[in-house]
Simulated assay, not measured.
Amino acid sequence: MLELFTSETPNGWKATILLEELGVPYKVTPISLTNQEQKTPEFLAVNPNGKIPALVDDGFAVFESGAILLYLAEKFGRFIPADAQGRSRAIQWVMWQVAGLGPMMGQATVFNRYFPEKLPSVIDRYTRESQRLLGVLDAALEGRDYLVGDYSIADIACFPWVRGHEWAGVTLDGLPNIARWMANIGARPAVQRGLLIPTPPTAEEMAAKTTTQGKSILA
């Protein structure tokens, strides 16, 4: 049995979307970031970096969301091209997301939403870089439905982060290829299911989470 330790974040949804697309049985263990459960000794035994998501497959632990996508795609032989060059292209976009789009949009979110002080120059730096990266993605989607031919882990890696663009303070204005791509992926039943795992927080819980994150962001 696969066991996924996760929370309701873009990186967490990458894993749940792929697991739902694969249609394989798995157990979900929700991790409360507000309560710092990702820093407990029990979780650190699975992921020494103390971040979600983490996957355990018959005692074998996999951490880092990009590594989880690659592990599952290769284990089940789906959502990754079979040829060497196609596989490389998919992995390149996964790496692009984990090294660029995710960190930049994550920092834009932190400084727009959670940081106790408003630092305009810092907010501008991360917002502009996030916007630039979205332009790169839009250009890559010109004339194609998905990033590397068929729908793959490349698209699954990027989708949850782009979906949260408003929360990060960036816009999809003038990016028609992304808008089309988002609509196509968002219509997939497995994607819709994956975005509900774990159960999304209520508006009241989100407000409390924002306050808590703002107080603890420097911890």
Rank of each mutant, 00 (worst) to 15 (best):
G50A: 08
D145R: 13
D83S: 00
K209C: 03
D145I: 03
A108W: 06
V191R: 02
V110E: 10
S7P: 05
T16E: 09
V162C: 06
T171S: 15
T171Q: 13
D155Y: 04
F63G: 07
L141Y: 04
I217G: 05
G66I: 03
P30E: 08
D150H: 05
A154Y: 01
W13F: 12
Q192M: 13
L133G: 08
I17F: 02
E117M: 12
T29E: 14
A157V: 04
A179R: 14
M104E: 11
Q92E: 14
W161A: 04
S32M: 05
S152N: 03
A168C: 13
E117Q: 15
G174I: 12
P10D: 12
A84Y: 00
V94N: 00
Q97T: 10
S216H: 14
Y26E: 12
L44R: 15
R89K: 13
Y151N: 02
R144S: 11
A157N: 02
I123R: 14
V62A: 06
I91K: 00
A157K: 02
T16S: 13
P41R: 11
P103C: 08
L101K: 01
T16D: 10
L195H: 06
D138Q: 09
I197L: 13
V46C: 05
A154Q: 01
P198G: 04
R87Q: 02
L4T: 09
A45Q: 14
R180S: 14
G169L: 10
K27W: 01
E166Q: 15
E42L: 09
D150F: 03
A61W: 05
L195I: 10
A168S: 15
L69I: 09
Q36E: 15
Q131K: 06
T34A: 14
N184V: 13
G23M: 08
L134T: 07
L119V: 15
L119Q: 11
F79L: 01
G135V: 09
W93L: 00
A15F: 06
I31K: 10
G164R: 12
Y126F: 15
Q192T: 12
W96T: 03
M1L: 13
L22G: 03
G169V: 10
L119A: 12
V24M: 06
V162R: 03
A139H: 12
T16V: 10
E42Y: 01
G174E: 11
T211F: 04
K215G: 13
T6W: 03
R87L: 00
V122Q: 07
E129G: 09
P103H: 08
F159A: 02
L101E: 04
Q38A: 13
V122Y: 05
E205K: 10
L133P: 05
P120F: 07
K27T: 14
I91H: 00
E42W: 02
A90H: 01
T9S: 12
K14T: 11
I178L: 14
A140K: 14
E74Y: 00
A67K: 01
L175Q: 14
V110H: 15
P176S: 09
G149T: 02
M95D: 05
I197D: 09
G86T: 00
E204V: 12
D138M: 06
R113H: 02
Y151C: 04
F60H: 13
D155F: 03
V56Q: 11
I68S: 04
G164S: 14
